[in-house]
Design a protein around this nucleic acid. Structure first.
Length: 289
DNA sequence: TGAAACGTGCCA
DNA sequence: TGGCACGTTTCA
């Protein structure tokens, strides 16, 4: 017990160091420092979606209690910007400049798409709806973006508002009333809520689409037999450094296990039996039994 | 019940 | 094809 306690303390200290690295680092001047374990193995993000470093604001979110929500919201706003430029179409100069100013890169977009789609816990349906609604609000007039401000202004409570905050989910505000995507374009899987194929084509670029499609189909064909993916949002998933002390790290070659402190919270849970979606209230909603 | 070992799917 | 990591089984 005492040993494990020391281990925990050590890892907490490492965790804090990790958090400092993520939260308070200099975004512009200091690139992501690759750490290597004793074997020389770089402790890189494990899933493909995590191999691309994310925007600093997303890591800053780890410092707050609303980390996951804030990240999803930020991602959504970027998704909205991405939606302004259809895949395969060269953006006009104004839009390109604006995106350049925002530091939006293809890499970043890939990360955001992964962040949205690689989440077994899922982007809640209501959240997804709200995020897309925001995207649609930006579509008619790209000159008045102000997205950056929107990202900063959105609070956790805002993105997790009540159902009345999502007019598209109600009969009054539904499809066509500022929301360009039909509800049927959402794919409900045990791994979460995704955008359908055609929708992804609109919202994301081709490469991101292929990646997302692969993950979607992977999740959709899960049937409870396929391996689940890391959510990428929980603290363990956000952790980028192996502790090198737990049994999983020590027995990496034979144990075939990820570091215990990086084990996804969602994967620790038993997979749900049916298609389940989290409601804004936090209660699970099962589509099929 | 948790840890360890092993099988195996997924991806580069 | 090899490495990584999730799922299952076994064991203390």
């Amino acid at each position: 017990m005492s040993g494990s306690g020391g281990l925990m303390e050590g890892n907490q200290a490492r965790e804090e160091e990790d958090a400092r690295d993520s939260c308070c680092g200099d975004e512009d001047s200091s690139p992501v420092v690759e750490r290597r374990n004793r074997s020389g193995i770089i402790s890189t993000p494990l899933s493909k979606s995590l191999k691309h470093s994310r925007a600093l604001s997303q890591y800053i979110a780890t410092c707050s209690a609303a980390a996951a929500v804030a990240t999803a919201t930020a991602n959504a706003s970027r998704l909205a910007q991405s939606a302004l430029v259809p895949a395969g179409v060269k953006p006009n100069s104004a839009a390109a400049q604006h995106r350049a100013q925002l530091g939006l890169t293809k890499l970043d977009r890939g990360a955001l798409v992964s962040g949205l789609l690689d989440s077994p816990s899922g982007l809640h349906l209501a959240q997804a709806a709200e995020l897309l609604r925001r995207a649609s609000m930006l579509l008619p007039d790209s000159s008045g973006l102000g997205v950056g401000g929107d990202v900063e202004a959105v609070s956790a409570s805002d993105s997790l508002g009540s159902m009345t905050d999502f007019p598209l989910l109600s009969s009054a505000g539904g499809v066509g009333a500022g929301f360009p995507f039909h509800p049927g374009l959402f794919i409900m899987t045990p791994a979460g809520v995704f955008l359908a194929d055609s929708t992804l084509s609109q919202v994301t670029g081709a490469s991101e689409h292929r990646q997302a499609h692969g993950e979607v189909t992977s999740a959709a064909s899960a049937n409870g037999k396929k391996k689940r993916k890391r959510c990428g949002l929980c603290p363990p998933c956000r952790r980028r450094i192996n502790c090198e002390q737990c049994s999983s790290c020590r027995n990496r070659k034979t144990g075939h296990q990820i570091c215990k402190f990086r084990k996804c919270e969602e994967l620790k849970k038993k997979p749900a039996g049916g298609l389940e979606v989290m409601l804004p209230t936090g209660a699970p909603f099962r589509w099929f039994q």
